[in-house]
Each structure stands twice: as C-alpha cells, then as structure tokens.
Amino acid sequence: MKKLIVATSNPGKMQELQEYLTELDWELQLKPDSLEIEETGETFIANACLKASGVALATGEWAIADDSGLVVEALNGAPGIYSARYGNTDTERIERVLKELGETTNRQAYFVCAIAIAEPDGSIAFSAEGICQGEILQAPRGTKGFGYDPIFYVPSVQLTFGEMNPEIKHKISHRGKAFEILLPVLKQQGIGHKK
C-alpha cells in the first residue's frame, strides 16, 4: 500500500477524501500537526499545489491537497480563496455572506475544488479542478455538511448542500467533479491502483 499524506490536520477532510479514493490502494495519513504550509497562491489550484508540494517535500512521501471555496458573483467573487477565513466560525461566515448580499437579486454562486497530488520530491504529478453551480439562499436550510453548505442551493436537485444525503453530494459536489477528472487519470497511470 502506498502512503499518501493529506495536507490537512482535519480528520473530517481526510475521511471525505478517503471516500473518493476507495478504488485506489493508498493509505491516507494526516500531515504532521507542526507542519504549516502558507496559502499564498492567488487561485484555488495554486494553493492546492503549494500545500501538496510543501507536505511532500517535508515528509518525503506522496501528498494530496485540496483547496476549495465559495465564489459569489454579486460579491465580485468573494469569499473565494478566503472562504475559510471569512469569519471565525461557519455561522459567522454564513452571516457575513448573507449580510453582504443583502436583498441582491443576483444570487448566482459556485463552489470550486482544486486537488493536487505531489510526488515525494515535491513536483506536482496531477491536478484537477471541479465546479458546482448553484445559488445563495436568503436563509440557511439543512444541518448536514459544513461551511457554507446550508445556504448553497443546487437547482438541479432542489436541495442545499446542507440538505443533501452524502451519496447525492458525493456525486454532484465540486469535490466529486474534481475527483471525476482525477481518478481516471490516476488509474490510467497505474498510480496507487489496486491490482
């Protein structure tokens, strides 16, 4: 089994990534707590690459990183790459987005997820970006998920991320779409594929 270091200290994030990588023969491990990689990139993909590369170099192992966030049209793309830092808690972040949008009728938004996998020498072997289109509701709905999930409504399934069962979210989410691009490439290259 190949070891793959996940560039996060969040066990929930690791669990979510593990669910997408079940077909691959990889043992996922969290990055060391002491290892902090500064996200200085100006795009999601740049930040994912920075994190994957930094963790791979520091540990000497293959590493995977994702960077994701919410992009709201009427807020000129905010919170964007600052999604996680848009407030101190999920509730604060949601309240800030709703307050900034106010009564704006343009509620168009999308979630982006960029994933990068780095080789032990820090070079980026693979990267992919997935997008899920939706809109921002006036008030939160649903208690599943985390972050902006309760205010992010996907018209095609008529549910917020906060109302979706994991199977639906797994398929249509930005993370699901990024892995949809990435997994066939990994299998084709024979990277971590179960024999």
Rank of each mutant, 00 (worst) to 15 (best):
D149Y: 05
L182G: 06
S83M: 11
K171T: 14
H193D: 00
L182T: 10
I191N: 00
F161K: 04
G162T: 03
E92T: 12
P140L: 07
Y82M: 09
H170N: 14
E92G: 15
L159R: 01
A125S: 15
E135W: 01
A128N: 05
M164P: 07
E95L: 08
M164Q: 03
F152P: 02
R96E: 15
P120R: 09
V97P: 13
V154F: 02
S156C: 07
V112Q: 03
S83R: 10
F179P: 07
I94L: 11
E129F: 05
T104K: 03
H193S: 04
A118L: 11
E129A: 05
K169F: 01
R85W: 01
S127P: 04
F161H: 06
E129N: 10
K99S: 15
P184T: 13
E129S: 11
A114I: 12
A109I: 05
A84G: 05
S123D: 12
Q133I: 09
I191T: 07
G145P: 04
Y82P: 01
P184Q: 13
Y86S: 11
A178T: 00
H174P: 01
G145M: 01
K169H: 05
I94D: 07
F126Q: 09
S173M: 03
T89A: 15
E92I: 13
G176R: 00
L101W: 05
F111P: 03
I124L: 11
A116T: 14
E100A: 12
A139T: 13
I181Q: 10
E103T: 15
A178G: 04
E119H: 13
A125L: 11
P166G: 02
E129I: 08
H174N: 05
I136E: 01
F126E: 11
L137F: 11
F152S: 04
K99N: 15
R141L: 10
Y110C: 07
G122K: 13
N106A: 07
E180S: 12
A109Y: 02
K99V: 12
H174Y: 00
K144P: 04
I117F: 06
G147M: 02
Y153E: 01
H193P: 07
Q188H: 08
F152L: 11
L98M: 14
D90E: 14
H170S: 11
F152H: 04
K187M: 02
G162L: 09
E135R: 11
H193T: 09
G176D: 07
F152W: 10
D90L: 11
D90F: 13
G142T: 03
G145C: 06
G162Q: 04
L101K: 05
E129C: 09
T89K: 15
I124N: 14
G192D: 12
Y86P: 04
D90C: 14
V157L: 08
E100C: 10
K187T: 02
V185Q: 13
S173T: 02
